Computed example of a mutant assay.
Amino acid sequence: METVIITGGTGLVGTALTNQLLERGYKVIILTRQPEKGTNKAVSYARWDIEQQTLDISALQQADYIVHLAGANVGDKRWTTARKQEIIDSRTKSSELIFKALQTNPNKVKKVISASATGYYGITKDHPFTETDPPADDYLGTTSVAWEKSIAQVISLDKKLVIFRTGMVLSKDGGALKEFYKPLRFGFATILGSGDQYISWIHIQDLVRLYFNAIVNDRLEGIYNAVAPNPVTHKELVLAMAHAAKGRSYVTSYVPAFALKLALGEMSIEVLKSVNASSRKIQDTGFQFSYPTVQEAMEQLFK
C-alpha cells in the first residue's frame, strides 16, 4: 500500500481526490493545522504550520507521493492589499515548507504533484494558451509564477514534479459553479459582463483523474493545463448549466461590467478576463476526458 500526503486535503478537490485514493487502496495523510478536528476515519491527519514552518516529519517519512493543493481561496474575499499577500503567502510559504522538509529529512517521496492555475496566462488573443506561453504581468499571473517557482525547488532534490494549471473546476459542491447556480434557484441565469469572455474549465471528476494519473504514471512530469478540450464563453457555460438544471424554466439576465467593478474591485478584472487554455499536451500523453464538452459536464452534474 502506497501513501499519499495531501495538503489542502479538506478542500473541494482534496476531498474528492482523497475518496478516489481510498477506493484504490492508497493510504492518505492530510496535513492540517488542527489534526484533532479531522472527521474522516479512513484517513490519517498530521499537523503542519505554514507560519511556523513546521510539519510532522513522521508523516512525511511515510509518504511515497505529495499532492500539494494548499492555498487561500482566490474568490472568497475582496482583494485588499492584505488579502492579496495572504493568497501569495499561502501558496509560496507552504511550498517552501515542503521543500525544506524534504531537503533536511530522509524520505522516500518519488513525486510531488502541485496545483497552479490558468490565471498564469493573460488575456486570450489569437490562439489558445499552451504551457510554453509567457505569464501575464497581472496579479494572478505573478502569483502563479511565484507559486510554481516555490515548488519547483523539489526538482533539485531528485524528485519528479507535475504542475497542473487548473481552469474553473465544475462541481456542485463548491467553487465558481456553486456561485453561478445561486441566482438560478430563483429562475435567473445570470451572465457576468458581456458573457463573451472565454472560460477554460474542467469537470471535477476529470481533474481528480488527472491527479491520480500523475501518481500512477511514472512518466508524467512537467507542467500541464488541467482544462477540458472545449473551452466556452461565460454565457455558454451559464446557459448550459441553466438548461441542464432547469430545462427552459429560466430567464437570462446580465450584470454589467461597471456593477461588477463596484462590487468586486480588482477581482472583477479576473471575472471578466478571457482565458482559453489548450489541453493538447495532456491529451498527447494518452489521457482521455470523461467530460470533454460543457454540455456533458452539466448534464452529469445536474442529472
Rank of each mutant, 00 (worst) to 15 (best):
V43K: 01
G187A: 10
A240E: 01
Q153C: 00
S58T: 13
H127F: 02
E148Q: 00
Y211F: 11
H234W: 08
I29H: 10
A263Q: 12
Y224R: 04
G8C: 07
D158S: 12
V255T: 14
G75L: 01
T7N: 06
K93Y: 12
V255M: 11
M298V: 09
F258Y: 12
A277S: 11
D49Y: 09
V208M: 07
F287Q: 01
W147R: 12
M1D: 05
T142R: 13
T293D: 04
R248Q: 15
D137I: 06
A117V: 13
E23R: 11
G193C: 11
G9N: 04
I123A: 15
K159P: 12
R280C: 08
K178P: 01
G187H: 07
E148D: 06
L21A: 11
V238C: 06
L177S: 04
F164P: 00
E221Y: 07
I202V: 13
L12A: 10
V28N: 03
L301F: 02
N73W: 09
A277K: 05
L60W: 12
K273S: 11
A59D: 05
M1T: 12
P128M: 03
S290P: 12
E148A: 07
I199Q: 11
L260C: 00
L31G: 08
A176Q: 11
A136W: 09
G14A: 13
S290L: 12
W147F: 11
L207V: 08
V208S: 02
D196K: 15
T252E: 15
I66C: 03
R83D: 07
I123D: 07
N107S: 06
S249C: 14
A146F: 13
A189K: 08
Q34M: 10
H234D: 08
F188W: 05
I204Y: 05
R209Y: 06
L237T: 00
D218T: 14
P135H: 08
I29R: 09
K160L: 01
I204Q: 14
S278W: 02
R91T: 03
R78Y: 02
G222A: 03
V162L: 04
I88Y: 00
H68V: 02
D218Q: 14
V169T: 11
A226K: 03
G247W: 04
Y211A: 06
V67F: 00
K111H: 03
V294Q: 00
Y224W: 05
L301G: 01
I87Y: 06
P292L: 13
L260P: 00
E2H: 15
I98D: 10
R24S: 13
K77G: 10
A245R: 06
E86I: 05
G11E: 07
Q62K: 14
P256Y: 01
L102R: 05
N105A: 04
L55Y: 08
I29F: 03
L12Q: 11
S44Q: 14
D56P: 10
K111A: 10
A297Y: 06
T3I: 09
I30T: 09
A228C: 04
L12C: 14
I199P: 00
